[in-house]
């Protein structure tokens, strides 16, 4: 496997991830963060929640001890069913208990603004 084939996980706030979002695409590489609400060992499917939004996470590819109520971050690719139900097939995950989610959300917005400025000024 070559490093060049790995796309970065675009930073996404769960509440932004709906069918009208530009990130809501088959195979999109995303990084999502939320509190673990459910986990089924047999299917390795987890559900994370952030605010009023939830997302299914397929954790089959990972070795991670999941604990209900803890905050996790996952990077992976989005799989969208014909019913528009989305699941993130995670390739990397980590526990981020203690993360300041308010600061995290605000920083993502600042980062996007900065990237847009740099791109328009020709740095990137």
């Amino acid at each position: 496997m070559s490093t060049s084939v790995i796309g970065h996980g675009e930073l996404v706030i769960l509440e932004e991830l709906n069918p009208s979002s530009p990130h809501f695409k088959q195979g999109a590489s995303l990084r999502v963060t939320g509190k673990l609400q459910e986990y089924t060992v047999e299917s390795a499917i987890a559900v994370i929640v952030d605010g009023s939004a939830t997302l299914r996470i397929d954790t089959q590819l990972m070795r991670l001890n999941l604990r209900i109520g803890s905050i996790y971050q996952f990077i992976g690719e989005l799989v969208i069913e014909p019913s528009s139900e989305a699941t993130l097939k995670a390739r990397v995950g980590r526990n981020v208990d203690g993360m300041d989610l308010n600061l995290y959300h605000q920083s993502i917005l600042l980062l996007r603004k900065f990237q847009a400025e740099q791109t328009s000024s020709g740095v990137a």
Binding site: H8, G9, L11, Q115
Partner: peptide, 10 residues
């Protein structure tokens, strides 16, 4: 060899 992803690139 390894790659680090900071959310803006790898």
């Amino acid at each position: 060899k390894f790659s680090i992803d900071d959310g803006t690139g790898c």
